[in-house]
Amino acid sequence: MKELVIKQINAKHVRKMVYVDDKPVVFSKVKNGVCEGSVKTDKESVKLTVYTFTELASPLWWLFSMLFYIISIFGLFDPVKFKSAVMIDYLATLDLTQENPRINLKTNYVKEGNRAIELSGNVAVLEEVNAYYLDAEIKKRIKSLKILKIAVFILFIILLLLKLSTLA
């Protein structure tokens, strides 16, 4: 059995989910922007998939987003901001015939159409797709979320003014 070691170089740059043969890779905690994970396999080649991780991809994205928006006092104390809908589209086949297969994974500058991932290491890589793409659905969700947030904020202002008028 072989152990493929995957090291993320700039792990904090883009939040990623890495899958080997459709199974998620568990990484160590990020330290100095670097984290490491490994996968054990008997196969000679495996499929590597990388996705951008975003909370807006979940089924109840609107509920949690609004919950966090209100808890954080209208986003004032929320450090997580959803701005970009540009996601990683990466799919490659890794040849694991080498001893102690090891790869370093580094994300590039986020821009639609740019190469998303740079892989280095002692493994032969056959890339099928490697690019940043604009996820239309996520873009729509970001837009809907903005409208929802403005609506909630206006509702709050109306309630605040009503409350103040009763106090006066």
């Binding site: 991809a57 979940s58 966090f68 808890i71 099928e128």
Partner: peptide, 24 residues
């Protein structure tokens, strides 16, 4: 777009949501 889009289950998102809440 050659890959299928990343659409996780709610259970997969739980750790991320908890960290997000922790930061807030």
């Amino acid at each position: 777009m050659k890959n299928k889009k990343y659409r996780p289950y709610l259970a997969d998102m739980a750790p991320s949501y908890l960290t997000h809440l922790g930061l807030i």
